[in-house]
Amino acid sequence: MTEFQPIRRRRSASLSREQIVDAAISLLDSGGEIGLTFRTLAERLATGPGALYGHIANKRDLIVAACNAIISRKVNVEAHHATPQETVRAVALALYDAMDAHPWVGSALRWSAGELTMVRILECLGQQIVALGVPEQARWVAVSSLLNYILGVGGQNAGNAQAAQAHCVSRAALLGSVATTWLQLDPQAYPFTRSVATQMRVHDDRADFLVGLDFILVGMMRMG
């Protein structure tokens, strides 16, 4: 007897760039950059890979487009009647949350510095640094430090969440295990680490991120 294979129906309507980017975001969220290929994307959209190349040139452009879409939807780089500190905090927190929800965004932002999305973020933060009175010769260092902190801490937090998920361990269990290990250290050699071990169990990553950001802002204001 001949075994009949199900026939996959191809999409009859033409695809839009937005549909392709949204499907790419879904694949990136579930499998990271490794999980995104033109073949898997074509299968998700029920089309052939050739139909995608009319909108997206290659995988790098696809990831950049997906990153741009996330940032444009979640991060408002326009300041509306806010102080420089409030604007920096709002943009930084929105970026942190975007990376938390979409862990691949942090790395995509780092290697797409020349793209308009990253330039808009740079411009927004740079204008706030000027408004804070940071001397001209220190502005590049100031904005670089700020961006490195936001992308570094946000990316690390997203990476930690991915690692916990990959090992099927909850955040609470992971932090509890670290705290237990720290408490077993030699008290003579590691007095500070032991002293903060209990805080490791209960700390709030998002709140800590904002505290660190405020440290940087206070330092910048003292430069004026």
Results as ranks from 00 to 15, higher is better:
Val134Met: 13
Thr180Tyr: 06
Ser170Ile: 06
Val134Asp: 04
Met99His: 08
Trp182Arg: 13
Asp97Glu: 15
Ser72Ile: 00
Ala138Pro: 05
Asp186Val: 01
Leu151Phe: 07
Ile150Arg: 01
Ala108Ser: 13
Gly114Leu: 08
Ile121Ser: 00
Leu183Tyr: 01
Gln127Met: 07
His81Ile: 05
Ala131Val: 08
Leu183Ser: 11
Gln128Arg: 04
Asp100Asn: 09
Val178Leu: 12
Asn160His: 07
Ser177Gln: 11
Gly126Glu: 07
Leu132Val: 02
Gln137Glu: 13
Leu122Ser: 09
Gly159Lys: 06
Met99Val: 07
Ser107Glu: 14
Asn157Thr: 08
Leu122Ala: 10
Val178Ala: 09
Leu109Ser: 04
Tyr149Phe: 15
Ser112Glu: 13
Val134Ser: 08
Trp111Cys: 10
His167Trp: 03
Gln184Glu: 14
Thr87Phe: 04
Ser145His: 05
Thr87Cys: 09
Ser145Ile: 00
Gln128Ile: 02
Ala166Ser: 04
Val105Gly: 04
Asn76Thr: 06
Leu116Val: 01
His81Met: 11
Val77Ala: 08
Ala94Arg: 02
Ala179Ser: 14
His80Ala: 09
Leu116Gln: 13
Ser112Thr: 10
Pro135Met: 09
Ala108Lys: 00
Gly176Lys: 02
Ala79Tyr: 01
Gly106Asp: 13
Ala108Gly: 06
Arg171Pro: 09
Pro135Ala: 13
Leu95Gln: 03
Pro135Arg: 05
Gly133Arg: 03
Val143Met: 14
Pro103Cys: 06
Cys168Gly: 12
Gly159Val: 00
Val105Trp: 06
Ala92Leu: 02
Glu136Val: 14
Arg139Glu: 02
Val88Gly: 04
His167Met: 03
Leu116Asp: 12
Tyr149Thr: 08
Gln165Ser: 09
Ala101Cys: 04
Leu151His: 02
Val75Lys: 01
Gly159Thr: 03
Ala113Gly: 00
Ala164Thr: 05
Leu183Gly: 14
Arg120Ile: 01
Val130Asp: 15
Leu151Tyr: 04
Met118Pro: 04
Thr180His: 13
Gly114Tyr: 06
Leu183Asn: 07
Ala158Val: 05
Gln156Ala: 15
Val105Thr: 15
Asp186Cys: 15
Glu78Thr: 11
Asn148Phe: 01
Leu116Trp: 06
Arg73Asp: 14
Ala138Leu: 15
